[in-house]
């Protein structure tokens, strides 16, 4: 099933919670409101003709100019061999999005990484801890306004230029 048809199915079921479908993009994507993301994902997984049984990737992107953090879901169906991209926007100052961990187990670690590197809180997540960085790290490095700390536990992060 192509993106336009999937968009139509979602629009009929969730109405205003589903936004536009960007069919001109390299990978057509559908905007979804944060409030409906879990239901939309469950619907996409459960309907036999959609059957998106795998969450291939979940990424966060900081769009500072638009003042949003976008979470991008790349879904794939092994049964039908088709894919779709969902996008959810959350405000930069307090990004909270419900977790899809209960739909796909793979989301557990993917969301932990987004929480760690971009500071998005996933509501209802069973184990929302930092994944890659130490627990006492301050800030979220993949944010566009992140400033690298001068030192960490007395270890300097600065190095003199080799070109002198």
């Amino acid at each position: 099933m192509d993106a336009a048809a999937i968009h139509q199915r979602l629009k009929a079921r969730f109405e205003d919670h589903v936004g536009d479908c960007d069919t001109a993009a390299k990978d057509p994507s559908i905007m979804v409101s944060p409030a409906a993301i879990v239901l939309v994902c469950q619907f996409l997984k459960d309907e036999p003709d959609l059957a998106f049984d795998a969450l291939s990737n979940e990424s966060g992107v900081d769009y500072k100019a638009k003042n949003v953090i976008e979470v991008v879901y790349h879904l794939y169906s092994y049964g039908h061999r088709h894919s779709i991209v969902l996008k959810v926007d959350a405000p930069r100052d307090n990004p909270v999005i419900p977790t899809v961990e209960h739909v796909w187990k793979a989301a557990n670690w993917l969301e932990r990484e987004i929480y760690d590197l971009l500071g998005v809180t996933f509501e209802g997540h069973t184990d929302l801890r930092r994944l890659l960085l130490p627990e006492d790290w301050v800030g979220h490095p993949l944010r566009k306004d992140y400033v690298e700390p001068e030192e960490y536990h007395g270890i300097s992060t600065r190095r003199e230029s080799l070109l002198k």
């Binding site: 993009a25 990978d27 291939s56 990737n57 991008v72 790349h74």
Partner: peptide
Amino acid sequence: DAYVRVESARGDMGWY
């Protein structure tokens, strides 16, 4: 934006 999949030695590697 674009997403590609490559069959790496450890399987489907996603590049976004």
